[in-house]
Write a protein that binds this DNA or RNA. Structure first.
Lengths: 352, 352
DNA sequence: TTGTATGCGTTATCAG
DNA sequence: CTGATAACGCATACAA
């Protein structure tokens, strides 16, 4: 493989001049430039990115650590982030953490190893106890939860408020016995900070505000928030004779399963039971019935996360006064569809 | 940031010894090793991956170029590939090409720049005319189509056979006027090699074998294979009074839209119209009605693709006799669900 | 406008 | 078992 030296020799110039041509430096005579370009073409020269990275101390790549790409939610998020990063000429490398704390820390450490210029970390496995570990000397943005007041930039969803709005929407549509399908946790007594628990809090607040009782029997905790688990859960709720007329699902994915489970059990949605999800994944609009949900404005979140990260990367060298850590909470809207009795037209109710 | 030299100094050894410790080389005395490890911990040392890459001429990262991560199909594929790559200690960096030929070539060139040790390329935009461009001197595996007899390894789906089986399944279930919802193309007169056209070919073969006429009015070509396009298409088919009792959708994604569109039009599936898709994305099982489809065994494809790529990477240096280019075609099965009159239990019909 | 010298941090080689 | 030396390919600072 040809190096910059080979090109220099072939073009009868110095390596420096070749470098200048490659990087579009202004001070190169046209004739020289063309001579060099010709030599590059002749030798099929390619820059060696590893060498350039070493020299510059930058890789032009940021890491994105998410639990899994193969999910409507994280897939969409990843796509939005890749798109946003492009505007900063940043490549995105996705790490799947499988929601494990271990792997999330691994991702942090890869970034530390300077494989990445920075890291966008969607924490699911790490808890407040790990805040200390986030005190690293390279750019990190936490995405998707609102758990750390901590030492890093943070882009979050209004989990509690939005869940309250979702539940309130069910109440406004006449539901009185509203179940929640949530993820694991919620029984430790400590303050819970995972997405599922935050959304549960919002649900509780809405019930309280409306003066509805909080029946523990209406709380369904699943090990995993998958479609399969949602379907099993819904079937079991019906089979066991549980009395409910509404379901708030903490993610659209699990809501898809719930809709399927209710159909299996012969329960009509929205006539007998109304269902609302959270995330507004692409599929929601095309289910039968279409799924009412919370839209947390992924694109804005993704843009803001990349913006923050790019900013930190920029000011990493100059020793400028570090900007304060920022916390950005996205706006949200309630998307009303058939599963709560909406019609085809999507009504939006903006909140923030 | 501490370097290997700093650690060496702190531990009172040479840089080489530190390197040996880091890389678990056998010939290091235990006492020395511990001295070094202590120094590393004290200085919070991290290897500089860029320097290592430069020195070794490898990055330990492979590229995966797909049209988009935010799709049930490619999301699942990406997840499978990441998992498979892990077993070879290879990191995967996803490039979104947006199905554009330009971006697919860009990905090739990044690989050429040695950012990646190799590339798995899911071609959609490139055509047979670009075969020449694949003649590169670094490892590449083409994934997902069966278009190039060409100069690279190739992991493909049995698009034609599987589509024929899907269509035959509709016929066996009693359909006689079977529509196909396919992507753009198919009117150029030339031999078409994109996924959609290959699947169309399988559809035609099945009709011919069964002695059914091929009515051009039953062929729906969509600009994009999205849920939205599928829904619009299905509504329009019904509205226009088209006579059909079965639909073969070339992807599950578009099939999801079609199911929704038929529901909008008041058409009952499977009683009035039967529907089958292709890909067996996770959602298919949980739709109402659940979607019959083709399962092309993604996991095996992903594993084989990574295996081939890792093999090429391995034998890149030694100047060994290059192994012949390989073409791997996965097995498939027909998954029968409610949309073609199946019951809850998934019946599988293995083919390959 | 172009060239020279130097070092980024690591590891392969080989000598001790 | 350990260390000295060199080189991976590029870009920065500075000199010419």
């Amino acid at each position: 493989m040809a190096t910059i030296q080979d090109v220099a020799k072939a073009a009868g110039v110095s390596a420096m001049t070749v470098s200048n041509v490659i990087n579009d430096h202004p001070n190169v005579r046209k004739a020289t430039r063309e001579k060099v370009l010709a030599a590059m073409a002749r030798l099929d020269y390619r820059v060696n990115v590893a060498a350039r990275n070493l020299r510059k101390g930058r890789t032009g790549t940021v890491g994105l650590a998410v639990p899994e790409v193969n999910s409507p939610y994280y897939g969409r998020l990843a796509a939005a982030i890749i798109a946003a990063a492009e505007r900063y000429s940043l490549r995105v490398c996705i790490e799947q953490t499988g929601a494990s704390r271990e792997n999330e820390l691994d991702a942090l450490s890869l970034s530390r190893n300077r494989l990445y210029d920075g890291l966008i970390l969607s924490t699911v496995g790490m808890g407040p106890a790990d805040v200390e570990l986030l005190k690293v000397d390279h750019p990190v943005v936490i995405l998707g939860e609102r758990i750390f007041g901590g030492p890093v930039d943070h882009v979050a969803m209004p989990n509690i408020d939005a869940s309250e709005a979702a539940t309130r929407h069910l109440i406004e549509r006449g539901c009185r016995r509203i179940a929640i399908v949530r993820g694991p946790g919620g029984d430790s007594g400590e303050e819970e900070v995972d997405v599922s628990s935050l959304r549960f809090t919002g649900y509780q607040q809405a019930l309280r505000s409306a003066g509805l009782p909080a029946d523990p029997g209406l709380v369904q905790s699943l090990e995993t928030l998958t479609m399969r688990a949602g379907a099993l859960c819904a079937r079991e709720m019906v089979r066991s004779g549980l009395d409910f007329d509404g379901v708030f699902c903490v993610t659209d994915t699990v809501a898809m399963g719930v809709l399927r489970g209710l159909a299996d059990a012969g329960v009509r949605v929205p006539e007998q039971v109304k269902v609302i999800g959270f995330d507004n994944v692409e599929e929601s609009e095309f289910l039968v019935p279409s799924l009412s949900t919370i839209d947390p404005d992924h694109d804005t979140m993704a843009r803001r996360a990349v913006e923050l990260l790019a900013g930190r990367i920029e000011q990493t060298e100059p020793g400028e006064p570090e900007a304060d850590r920022e916390e950005f909470v996205s706006r949200f809207s309630v998307v009303v569809r058939e599963s709560t009795g909406g019609n085809d037209t999507t009504e939006r109710e903006d909140k923030g």
